[in-house]
Design a protein around this nucleic acid. Structure first.
Lengths: 116, 116
DNA sequence: CCTTGATACCTAAGAATCTAATGTATATTT
DNA sequence: AAATATACATTAGATTCTTAGGTATCAAGG
């Protein structure tokens, strides 16, 4: 499990990307999927996930559909057109950011151009 | 310039790693170095940086040394033993997190093991 | 001289988002 | 019958960032 610091700021990217690939998912399913796909290294908490899903719906990136399973009701989320575009953008941005960070962390330059 | 969401949570890693490589730096120098090293893609704001430096010093990860340059005073920061260890840990953690995220974002699995 | 931009430090109000805890209820397994 | 898993949700508090502002020195150009 990673320090939660890092996961902050990537939650939206993870959720939108997952919905891009899976079509529709419900909240609990998202937490389990991410947990399994990362061997438990990333575990989304419900206290962070549900408010995010509600925000994304309010912002028009997701729509919901309620499905009854016995006496329980699942709330499925899927992307709107806008949500699909945002998903693509955020994934691209994360990859670029990831590259930039790895370059920054690996460069052993001795302050080549700064003249304090 | 990246959406600030992503930079959140990586600021500490960036600063400690930079000090590992450079030995000692002052606040303004850090902002300029990161800006130049990333072609302006990552720009630290002073409102985020200075409070962080103060926290890191209070937590015993950094020590300071004031150096007079004419009538101005620069405040140089360098790592303590504890800070050096934390730096190594955070960089390692970021790289692992980065790998995990990239795998997660790229996998096109159709929910192989989840049984909702 | 004086203004502008760069250097160099700092704080503080408010916003955003996460954590941790808690609540409710149904379904399944032991 | 009890424990665990499924499935939704909210809330107080903490953390950390943004935005804006404040102070002051130094160098360069008009």
């Amino acid at each position: 499990m990673y320090s939660n610091e890092l996961i902050k700021g990537t939650l939206k990217t993870i959720v939108l990307n997952l919905l891009t690939k899976q079509g529709k998912m419900y909240g609990y399913e998202i937490t389990q999927h991410v947990k399994e796909a990362t061997d438990g290294k990333i575990q989304l908490t419900e206290g962070a996930l549900y408010p995010l899903l509600h925000r994304l719906e309010a912002d028009g990136l997701l729509t919901t559909e309620k499905v009854s399973i016995g006496k329980r009701v699942r709330k499925y989320y899927k992307l709107t057109k806008n949500g699909a575009e945002t998903s693509t953008d955020l994934v691209k941005e994360f990859k670029e950011f990831s590259n930039t960070m790895n370059r920054l962390l690996e460069s052993y330059t001795v302050n080549p151009s700064f003249h304090g």
